[in-house]
Structures are given as C-alpha cells and as structure tokens.
Amino acid sequence: MCVNQVIRARTGRTGRTDRTWPEPRALLELIKPITWFPPVWAFLCGTVSSGADPLAHWPMVLLGLALAGPVVCGMSQAANDWCDRHVDAVNEPGRPIPSGRVPAPWGLAVALAMTVLALALGRLLGPWGFGATLLAVLAAWAYSAEPLRLKRSGLWGPGLVGLCYEGLPWITGAAILSAGAPRPEVLALAALYALGAHGIMTLNDFKALEGDRAFGVNSLPVTLGPARAAKLACWVMALPQLAVIALMMLWDRPWHAAALVALLAAQAAAMRVLLRDPKARAPWYNGTGVLFYVTGMMIAAFALRGLG
C-alpha cells in the first residue's frame, strides 16, 4: 500500500482542507503546552545549580522560563508538526494540521514567527543565553526539516531533543545567573542529564511505530524492534545517572548521592514493568519513571550550590 493510500485508510481524507483561518484552540494545541515542562524544569535546575539567588534576578528568570517553555519549545513543536504533517496523518490524524483545524501554511507561519521571537528574546539573556537559544532553534529545525531531518536517525534525533529539553535550558539558567560561563561542574551535570534524556526520547518514539515505518523514519523502535530498543533506552537513562552519583561522592555530597541512588532504584523497578511489554508500557513509563529522573535532576542541582 502506498503512503497516500495509508493516509486515506487511516483518516478517510486526503489531509487537504478548505479552511482559511485556524481554530484558536487548535493553535494552542499546535505548540503543545504539556511539552513545556521538561525545558522549564531544566532551566530551573540551572538557576539552582548556579549558586545565585533566583529571586534577586527574577525578571531574567521569568524571561528565561518563557523562552525555554512557550517560545522555544512551542516553536519546535509547531515546526515538527508542520514538517510531520504527512506522518501524523498516519500516526495521529487528529492533530491540528492533518485534521484540518490548522491549515498547513498557518502551521509554518507560526513556527517561523516563533523562531524570530525566540532569537529576539535570547539576545536579552546575554552571550551565553543567546548562544544556547540559537543552538536550540537550529537543532529544532535540523531535527524536523528537510534536507537534514535528523529525526530519521535513531541516534541523532533523540540526542538533539535531549540536548534541547535538558542540556541547553540547564546551561542557560546557570549562565544568566552566573553572568558568564557556567562552572565545569554545572556543564558536566547538564551534559549527563541531556545524554540520559536520549533514552526518554527513544521511549517517546514507540507511539509512532506505524507511521515511522511507512515514511522511513529510522527510530530505534523501528530499527531494533520494541524489545531491544526499550532495553537500550533503559541503559542510556541509567548510566548517566550512575555517573552523576559518582560525581556526588567525588564532590563530598553523600546525602545527595543516597537520594539519587533511591530514585534510580525506583526507576529500575519501573523499567522491569516497562520491559514486559515495551510498546504498551512506554507511555506509562514516561508518566512514572521519568518523574524520578527529573526529581534527581533538581537534587543534583541543589548539590552544586555549595561548590562554587
């Protein structure tokens, strides 16, 4: 069955619409507020890890939160939905663009306008804040858009998302409160948690197996199969956290290390449930095991406050 036939079979339509103006609620759905939490949380971890008082710099903190969540993350979601409109017609035909509630040109216009807004706001955060914003914007388009479309790679795609969701916001939060380059310890933790997020993003790919196969998106669940991909994702999530625990001991933070060990043990228990049926359990794990992961991020951030 060809791609167009797959789309028509799943949606009962060709994906074309005569609508000129988008539905307001669908525009909000396009930028997916539920996805803003990871970068906002990572940004807060960065502000905490800097050692500075966030309340003393609250205007910059609020600007950074808006940039990390609604603007940059929202832009990346709109760009991804526009670039993935044919894939979504198979995987999730109810999404704003394939359903026709947001005409495709509007989806592109929103993504481009928010790209410009992100860069403009990023300039207000100083050289490090702007640099991180620029990298996040470039990564978002490289992930979704041709000719790069790095989401076709099960290695580079989740890695880029992990970097943009956890690493760059953390670095940005630390940089704007440090008024300069973050400390090496901060960069180390941001990099480790961004690496671990690769596994989280791999689990997120399980929901798109059918459409990814039809459109040649070589996610790890497609190339390795659900069972092997889930095992690899678990190791990718766990090993960076073990490295963080080792760093906590090296930096004389035994109580923080103990808390991280307990959170990793809880994740290991959830991983056992996940591996029984990875395709069915991946959404469950993203709602439970990931909570322990992000809690560990904040604990590690507090451990850094006294190291400056």
Rank of each mutant, 00 (worst) to 15 (best):
V6R: 15
L189N: 01
V273P: 02
G308V: 13
G69I: 07
A190N: 01
V6H: 12
T223H: 03
T223C: 04
P254M: 06
P98R: 00
L44M: 14
D212I: 05
L65P: 05
P38Y: 07
W284E: 07
V6C: 10
M271L: 05
T20Y: 06
D81H: 14
G46R: 00
D53E: 14
L263Y: 05
F130R: 03
V294P: 01
W41V: 07
E92C: 05
T17D: 04
P33M: 13
I34D: 10
P93S: 08
C2N: 13
D252N: 14
W128V: 14
A208R: 01
P103T: 09
L134T: 11
D252A: 15
A111V: 05
R228S: 11
A197S: 14
M271T: 08
P54N: 12
R183A: 15
K32F: 06
A139K: 00
T11N: 08
L307H: 14
S144Q: 10
L121E: 05
P105H: 09
E210D: 15
L112H: 04
A238L: 13
P98F: 11
F130N: 02
V40Y: 00
L239N: 04
A303P: 04
Y165A: 10
R19V: 10
A191I: 04
G196M: 12
W170S: 01
C234W: 02
D277N: 15
A265T: 12
I97G: 00
G199W: 02
G129I: 02
A139T: 09
A230P: 00
G64F: 06
A136G: 14
P98E: 03
A26G: 09
M249A: 12
G225K: 11
S144K: 06
A190Q: 00
L209W: 10
T295N: 09
P54A: 08
W235R: 13
V87M: 11
D18G: 07
V6I: 11
L121C: 11
A303I: 09
P22Q: 09
V3R: 15
A266H: 10
A243G: 08
L247D: 02
V137C: 09
A214S: 10
F215R: 08
W284H: 10
A9F: 07
K279F: 04
N286V: 07
G129E: 01
L163H: 02
D18C: 03
G100H: 11
G122P: 01
